[in-house]
Amino acid sequence: MWTKPVPATALLAAVTLTALAGAPAGASADPASANPVGGDLLGSRGLVVPEGVKPPPKTKATSFLIAEAETGHVLAAKDPHGRYLPASTLKTLTALTLIPKLDRNQAIKPSRNAVNQEGSAVGLSTKATYKVHDLFRALMMSSGNDAAMALAEANGGLAKTMRDMNAEAKRLQANDTVAKTPSGLDKPGQSSSAYDLTLIARAGLANPDFRRYISTKTAKFPAPKKWYEISNHNKLLWRYKGMLGVKNGWTSKAHGSFVGAASRDGRTIIVTIMRHEGYFWEEVEDLLDWGFSARGKVTPVGQLVDPLPAQPDPAQQVTAPSSQPPAAAPLLDSAAAKQTDTSRTVGLAVIGGGLLFGAVWLGFGIRRRRNKARL
């Protein structure tokens, strides 16, 4: 759903901006871009909140973002474009990328490499065969790193899956995101941001299969000899009213991260936190409560941008014989094939139901930019 952006002058007049002295721990020391995706105010390394309302509850997270899914309005944020290690919240991008590409009933026999992945695992065996549907459950419910690798292998291998994931990030305009693993296990150069993870979650919520996987509390999972039960690691599915799920993550380097969405009265609030060093569940509940109380009552501080149009897969295109010389490859096809640590924004505005290239969103200053990766 596209909502007309609020003029930048109105935003500046209605927002309190608290700048931090110096970059937060875990992020690049380079200053944020003056023109970030989603609006100028989202370039702050500090707290950005609307005036006239009580600020969001305090959280120990270094970075967070609160947004309304239907409108894309960003209600409040702190260092939203700061680049951090995403841990298992990166599995949201893995699922969003691979769900449309894999047959849910396809049978998969995982490799020894897949079953021996370090960290959280669902317990895959090289002696068993699993359906893709079961592996997605293991990925999003039990945060199985073994399931992530098995799905990557089913997609044609790790290298291809990384290309696909990074191309999907570019399509979403999640320009702070660089995927190096399908599981979110720490790897040099890998990054995401609270803004990007919220973009990914919003896109995932529009996919019925993605939504089903993240909201399933318990499920039967196959094993070589018998089935056993797996449960969702998202504690809020059991205790927060309207909780839809999404994904939590943790590594010793990334610390705690979480993306959660909840719906009440036909409206969905998304809360994303990154680099939290403690127990964050109650803090997330408080942030969600604040989001529900603020929606529709405050001037948004930014906007979740819409995805770029999907580009056809050249490998699946059939070209009719022609006497004319082949046309040059479209610019976006060439760009999507290359993922670097350089953040770029393609100028795009969505008007009504159509797409207009080259337009500049004056309200939030969404335009071409380059940021050095901040990890």
Rank of each mutant, 00 (worst) to 15 (best):
M1D: 06
P5T: 08
T9Y: 06
V15N: 00
T16V: 09
G22I: 12
A23P: 02
G26I: 06
A27C: 06
V37Q: 12
D40R: 15
S44M: 08
V48G: 00
P50G: 04
G52C: 04
G52S: 02
K54T: 15
K58D: 13
T62N: 04
T71C: 05
G72Y: 00
D79C: 10
H81S: 02
R83W: 12
L85D: 02
A87T: 06
L90K: 02
T92H: 07
K101S: 03
N105F: 00
K109W: 03
K109M: 09
Q117A: 12
S125R: 11
A128P: 01
T129F: 02
K131E: 04
V132F: 08
D134M: 09
L139M: 05
A148H: 03
E153P: 00
A154W: 01
N155P: 07
K160R: 14
Q173S: 08
Q173I: 04
A174P: 03
A174K: 07
N175Y: 03
K180T: 09
P182S: 01
P188I: 12
P188T: 11
S191L: 11
S193N: 11
A194H: 04
D196R: 14
D196V: 12
L199M: 13
L205N: 02
N207E: 05
N207V: 09
D209F: 12
D209S: 10
Y213D: 05
F221C: 02
K225G: 00
K226H: 03
E229F: 13
E229T: 15
N232Q: 10
N234C: 07
K235Q: 14
W238V: 04
R239L: 00
K241L: 11
M243Y: 06
V246I: 15
V246L: 08
K247F: 05
W250E: 12
T251S: 12
S257N: 13
R264S: 06
G266C: 06
I269D: 06
T272K: 08
M274H: 02
E282S: 13
E283A: 15
E285N: 10
D286C: 01
L288I: 14
D289I: 00
S293E: 11
A294C: 05
G296T: 12
K297S: 04
T299S: 05
P300L: 10
P307G: 01
A310M: 10
Q311C: 01
Q317H: 07
Q317Y: 09
V318Y: 09
A320G: 07
S323W: 14
A328W: 08
S334R: 15
A337N: 11
Q339W: 01
G347N: 15
L348M: 15
L348S: 02
V350G: 07
G353W: 10
L356V: 15
V360C: 02
W361T: 09
R374I: 03
